[in-house]
Each structure stands twice: as structure tokens, then as C-alpha cells.
Amino acid sequence: MITDFRLPLGDLVSDGIDVLTDSLRPLFDLIRLVLVSLYEAVEFVLLSPPFWAIIIIAAALAYFVKGWKFAAGTIVGLFVIVGVNQWENSMASLALVLVASAIAIAISVPLGIVAARSNRASATIRPILDFLQTMPAFVYLVPALILFRVGVVPGIVATIVFAMAPGVRFTELGIRGVDKEVVEAGHAFGSSPWRILRQIQLPLAMPTIMAGINQVIMLSLSMVVIAGLVGGGGLGSDVVQALSRIDVALGFEAGLSVVIIAIYLDRLTAALSGKRRTMWTPWRTKATITEAAPSPAPAAATADARVGASV
């Protein structure tokens, strides 16, 4: 008896997607067009210059945010990618990651701000994030495939959905973690909520938000391979190919390229968030404070002066 009953959840969602596809076709076509153009524009920027130009720029960036060791590692890593003939695939995947994470950040940071400002919004958003984050990533591909058809776009959309959660969570955490008294000080001097957000909460939450952005980018990269399943191109398609052909060599080379790009992006964004933090917590404070602290002598002197004056 009991086995006959079945919750028709899957059918419901499937029907819902069908309705969406039928009624909002033009909207999804528009989104598809926008995402494709964005992706192609970024890919064009990355692929049209010779590979060594991109490597020089990446290394310069690495040197600027962290130092020469990171720059040297960047050059070695990227040359390895060129050496295993995965440069074009890597740039295609990088373009996908950049577009997807940029959009994920653009959605998740404001959502995080909203969640930080209202307990009700936070309570609403949190279970949705749990859902998005723990649902197996492949599952997003199916509806994305139906809505946006085969190609790079379902990959980007699935990546955005999957990678968004830490952006929201870290932003909320960062803003809620700003010293309450400091925010109160903003109010006490008559600042508007917008000014407090812009001048106090966001700057002070920035290290945490940057950590969230770092996580968004890393999760995007991990989705690249899965995007290959739906024709996302780039490194993902080579990995998928290697899997279907049991081609260990190809699989390793494509996989290694993903790892190199991942490490580069991780260290880059981590260094960015770290840099902001050091700006206002210099390491040299302790020694200077003890020397500079005003001596108690003036206090005693004024007390004496008062006695003298009163006699």
C-alpha cells in the first residue's frame, strides 16, 4: 500500500521548467545572447594576443600583488600549460570562469548585504543557499540545458548558481562582524544608512568579502569540468573526452592545467584580500606605543599646581 504512494516532486519541477521554457522563451534567449557575447568578448581578449603577452601580464599582476616568487611560479605554470598544448582550452575555461564568477559576485554581494541588514532576509536566504550549495552540481545542468540549449551558456548558468553561495555567506558574515560600536558611531554622527554601508561596513568587511570572492572563483573553476559535459568547451571538454576514451595522458594534461589556473587565481585573490587587511593593522605598533604613551608626570604636575594655587 505504502509503496504505491509517491510524492510527484520531480514531475512538478519538470512541469515547472516546461512552463518556464514555453512562456519565457524570449527572456531565456536574451539571457543566452548576453552571456554568449560576454563569454566571447572575454575569450577574444584572452586569445587574440600571443600567449607570451598574456603570460607577461599575468606575471606582472602576480608580482604587483604578492612578489617575485609568485610571478616566477606563474611564468613556469603557464609555460607548462603551453607545453602540453592546452593554452587555448585554458583561456576558454578562464573566460568562462571570469564571466561566471563576475556575475556570481555581482549577485551574491548585494544579496549578502541584504541578508546582513535584515534577520528575516537572512532566514529566507540561508536555506536557499544550503539547497544551491549541496544539490549535486550535475543536477543544475539538466534544466540549464533545457532552458539555454547546448553550448557554453548552460555551463555558465550552472556555475553561477553553484558558486554563488559563499559570496553571500561571507558578505553577510563580514558585515555582521563589523564592530557594532563602530557602526553605532556612524549613526551617532548622523550618517545615513547608505553612507554607513559605503564608508564603514563595506570597507571593514572587505577582507571577509574578499575571502568569499576567492571561494566563488574556486568553486567556479571546479564547475568548469562539469560544464564540459554540456558542450562548455575548454579544458572541460578535454577532460570529458579523456574520460570517455580512457585517455590517461589527455586527462592528466587537461586536469593539470585546471590545477595551475586554480592555484594562480587563488593566490591572486587571497593576496588581494590580505593586502587590504594589512593596510590598517601595521605590525610595528607595540613598540611605538609604549614609547609614545604620555607619561603620568603631567597629571601629578597639574595636581601640584592646583594645591599651590589654592593656598
Binding site: D179, A185, A188, F189
Partner: peptide, 30 residues
């Protein structure tokens, strides 16, 4: 907000300074 700007200012127990601003910019905040 206008009253807070023009009539009442406040000093806090744990200072509540803006750590990302210099002493001068802190003092100039109001």
C-alpha cells in the same frame, strides 16, 4: 540625523574609531 549632526555628538567606551581612517580623517568624520 540632523539633530545628531548639529546638536549631539558621542564618545564611546571602546573608542569606536574607524580603523581604516587616519586620526585626522577620524576627527573629520562628523
Amino acid at each position: 540625523r540632523e539633530v545628531r549632526q548639529k546638536n549631539v555628538s558621542m564618545v564611546f567606551q571602546h573608542f569606536a574609531l574607524f580603523p581604516h581612517r587616519t586620526v585626522l580623517d577620524n576627527a573629520a568624520y562628523g
